[in-house]
Computed example of a mutant assay.
Amino acid sequence: MNPSIIRTRYRRFRTKKAIKRFNVDVSKYSGILSIPCLGMRLSEVMKAFYLFKGKKPKMVCMNNKHFQSVIDFWRSTGAINKELSTGFYMVSMAIQLCDEIDLYGFWPFSSRFESSKTDVAYHYFDNIRADTAVKAHAMNQEFSIIVQLHNLGIAKLNIGAC
């Protein structure tokens, strides 16, 4: 789960309406839900999750020290000089945990690769465009690393329409 969703869509779980919306949205998932507890009190996240009604996925709270170590690693390589995107952090985590990695939705440009040059949103859940995202994240640098991971057979990058 992207940290900006918690801030914007779920208002940091500070209202009953936001918690209810979280409950409705989370009920669509099973398996493991990774929650970014970065910059939040764990009690806020746990309150929203505790009040959740229905089938609960397993919740994993991102570890701030791990997140910082991943940032430090990529900065030490000189490959990335801005904040990591949540997606790139998750790719970095997947490299450490998974035998196979299939990636969808990583495309740092504002239009599709294919012949039909349709617009591509940066986030699937809001109206932020890729050209706006580059102000906060090193999207081209991240994508270049992901392409290298693909070429090395470490991850399979899918750039076509899902």
Rank of each mutant, 00 (worst) to 15 (best):
P3M: 06
I5C: 12
F13E: 00
K20G: 04
R21I: 04
R21G: 02
F22P: 01
F22E: 00
F22V: 00
V24Q: 13
D25Q: 05
D25S: 09
V26I: 14
L33K: 06
S34M: 12
S34I: 15
S34D: 06
I35H: 00
P36T: 02
P36E: 03
C37R: 05
C37I: 08
G39L: 05
R41V: 06
L42C: 09
K47F: 07
A48T: 00
L51C: 11
G54T: 08
K58P: 08
M59N: 06
M59F: 14
M62T: 13
N63S: 14
N64Q: 09
N64R: 08
K65G: 13
H66P: 04
F67Q: 01
F67V: 14
F67P: 06
Q68W: 11
F73Q: 06
R75I: 11
R75W: 15
S76H: 05
S76Y: 09
T77L: 10
A79I: 05
N81S: 13
K82Y: 03
E83F: 11
E83V: 01
T86E: 04
G87F: 04
F88E: 03
Y89M: 04
A94W: 01
Q96R: 10
C98G: 12
E100V: 03
D102S: 10
S111F: 14
E114R: 08
V120K: 06
A121N: 12
A121E: 07
D126A: 02
N127H: 10
A130M: 14
T132R: 10
A133E: 10
K135D: 13
A136E: 14
A136Y: 14
M139G: 08
M139N: 10
E142S: 02
F143E: 01
I146W: 03
Q148S: 12
Q148H: 12
H150M: 08
N151D: 12
L152C: 09
G153A: 03
A155C: 13
K156E: 03
L157T: 00
I159V: 15
I159F: 04
I159W: 01
I159E: 04
G160C: 07
G160K: 07
A161F: 10
C162F: 12
C162R: 14
